[in-house]
Every structure is written in C-alpha cells, then in structure tokens.
Design a protein around this nucleic acid. Structure first.
Lengths: 206, 206
DNA sequence: GTCTATAGGCTGATAGAC
DNA sequence: GTCTATCAGCCTATAGAC
C-alpha cells in the first residue's frame, strides 16, 4: 500500500506546513493578525484548501496553542532538574518569565487571548494524563514546592498546590503586564522577578 | 450668550451619551464588540454623527479607559485610609481583585487590551500630576508600603517602590488569569489572594 | 485535491444632500 | 448637525469547475 501511504504523508506534510505558516504569522502579526487568507498566501495555496485540513481558524489556533504549551514545557524542563529546591524555584521563575517575554506572541496565544483556547488543552482526550502539556507544566512548577516541603523548609500549614498557584499567578502577572503595558511597572524584570521570588519565599517584613 | 451656551451644553451632553453607550457595550460585548455602528444605534443617531464628537473609535476607547481608571481609584480610595499598614495592604489587595473581577470588562480595557490605550493615560498633559488617575492609583498602593516602612516593619534593604510593583504585578496576575482562563488556577480567589498577600509579607518558608 | 469565484457578513470612515 | 448612501477594506466559509 505504498501509494496510499504516500498520499497520507503528503496530507500530513501540508497540514504541518499550514501550522508552520500560521505560527510564523502569529509571531509577526500577533494572534489578531492570523487570517486564513494570509496562511494560504504564505504556503501558496488557495484559502479554500485550508478547509480540507482544518475545520477552520479556531482549530488552527487550538493546535498552535497546544504546541506553544509544549514549548513552554520544553523551556521549563531543563531547570526543573536543579536539585536544591530554592534554587530550582528561582530558576523556574527566571525561565518562565524569559519564555514569556521572548516568545511573546506564543505566550499571548496561550494565556492571554481566549479562554476557550487554553481550556481546549484541558478538554482534550488525554487531558490530565501524563502527556497533557498543561499537566506537565503544572507538575514542573509544583515539583519545586513539593521539594521544598520534602526538605522540611515549608511552613507547616502551607499547601504546596496553593503556593504553586500563587507562584504561577504572580509570574503571569509580571509577564502579561510587561507584554501589554511596556514600561508600566517601572521596575525592570531583572529586578522585579528576583524581588518577587524573594518576597514570596522570605517575605517582605523585617 | 445663552444660545451658544445651550449649544455647547447640548454638544457636551451628546458626547457624554456616546461615552455612556460605549461603556454599556463594552460591559456586555467586551471591548472587541465595541463598534461605531453599535454605539450609533444605541443612542439613535447615525454612525457619521459620532465623528463630529470623536476623532474615531480609538478616541472613544481612550476616554473609556481613563474613566475606568478613575473607577479603579474610587474603588481603592476607601480602603487606603486603613491606618494599620498590614491591614491596609490586605484590604487593598482584596479591593483590587474584587474590582478586577466584578468590573471585568473595564479591567480588561484598562490593563489587558492595548498598550497604546493604557499608556495614553500617562501621555496626557496632566500625566504625572496629582490629577492623573495612573499616578493616583499607584500612590494609593505605594502608600501601603511606605506606611509599612515608616512603621519600621520593612526589611532595611527593601525598596517600597519595587515592592509596590511586585505587589501590583502579582495582583494583576491573579485577576488577568482568572478573567482569561476561568478555573485555571484551581485555587479560588478567596484562598489565593490571602495566600498571596501572606506569602509576600511573611514568606513561604518555615 | 485544488482551484476560482463568490456569498454574506462585518468593519471604520467619508461625501454630499438637507 | 444630522442624515443617507457608500467607499474600500477586511474576514470566514462554501459552491462548483477542473
């Protein structure tokens, strides 16, 4: 069955080229600038052809979102192996914010554009499973606080899962504020992020 | 000059009605759903008439943004008079998050839509002056940390301005994440915000 | 499978009659 | 000042020829 296999391969190739072109457009024009026409023009096909591979713009956005989430996981994975819990959390914070600022449009797509797209990650069949990128990213960050707890450094009443959410939400605040309002928090990220992590871990009080 | 005064009053009235209608549309349809046609229909005028009062959609958005910022200041002002610094910061956090979640579309317009709109607040003639809503909001929050410092409760090396930015960015993270990804941080805000404030002030460590 | 062509909708903004 | 009518552009999605 070599012929049908070749056809399937060609179909998959075109699908991948569509996604690649869409990704490039999102990176340059932002998510709002992603249109079927632009994608078609980029791969030199007609707009109608796209609908043979995707149900519509939303499905393309969903796929981009999922692969973007995988990129985030890839960015966090190396630093998640730092042994010392506190150093790991500091490294996770730095890596998270760096990813968000450097892959700005990807980050926007994942966390700042549309509720339905991000929740699509969790609504997929394997959601919650070990292959779910959302679960993976959460696990990497939560791992830092679980390690902190295992080392006995966490306050006894503290819930590692709540602290993970606090940590994630705070980092998201830094990234999204910097992306949307450049220069609004006057403090540069190189100062802001360490100060944030230090405050969360040690507190601000004397 | 009663006639010209009446005309000026009528013109100002219509301008206010346009803004009011635009505000209502943003509240129901979101900022993306704000169109000149909808505004015109709501006030029962033709679309072209709007351009006699505003240069275009962007100017309307800018005015909405400014008045939204004033609403935020109004929401923070009452709790900013709490005397005890720590209680004031806790109250500020609660008031800020409550405003963001209850006035979701207003908050979105101010902090999550467009860099140019939020920076327009700072680019206005009186920007930086005591009447600038951005300066006012910042001052209300910074006041909590200055009070903390004045009471001698702040770590000696801590910079109140940096802590203000850390605090604001973290709260923005909670609000924006909840607005965009409902249910993503599994921890409810009633738990998340106190845990965030407690961590920032006291730290997570044992 | 891929094309052209188009339906049918939306948008911001403007020109000219009254 | 306000209207009607319209320009010029964008978009998603689909129908039918090849």
């Amino acid at each position: 069955m070599g012929i049908s296999e070749r056809k399937a391969r060609q179909k998959a190739d075109l699908r991948a080229r569509i996604l690649e072109a869409a990704r490039a457009i999102v990176l340059t024009d932002g998510f709002a600038g992603l249109t079927m026409r632009k994608i078609a023009q980029a791969i030199e096909y007609s707009p109608g052809t796209l609908y043979l591979h995707f149900a519509g713009r939303d499905e393309i956005a969903r796929d981009l979102c999922i692969s973007g989430f995988r990129d985030l996981v890839a960015a966090l994975t190396p630093v998640a192996s730092v042994a010392e819990p506190r150093a790991r959390i500091e490294a996770l914070a730095e890596a998270y914010v760096r990813f968000g600022l450097e892959q700005a449009e990807t980050y926007r797509l994942i966390f700042m554009v549309d509720p339905t797209i991000v929740s699509a990650i969790y609504d997929r069949p394997e959601a919650g499973g070990p292959d779910d990128p959302g679960t993976q990213a959460y696990g990497l960050i939560a791992g830092g606080f679980l390690a902190l707890q295992a080392a006995g450094d966490l306050a006894p009443t503290a819930d590692p899962m709540v602290l993970t959410d606090v940590f994630w939400a705070s980092l998201h605040g830094v990234v999204s504020l910097k992306l949307t309002c450049p220069g609004f928090p006057a403090t540069p990220v190189e100062v802001l992020v360490p100060a944030l992590v230090a405050s969360l871990l040690d507190g601000m009080l004397a």
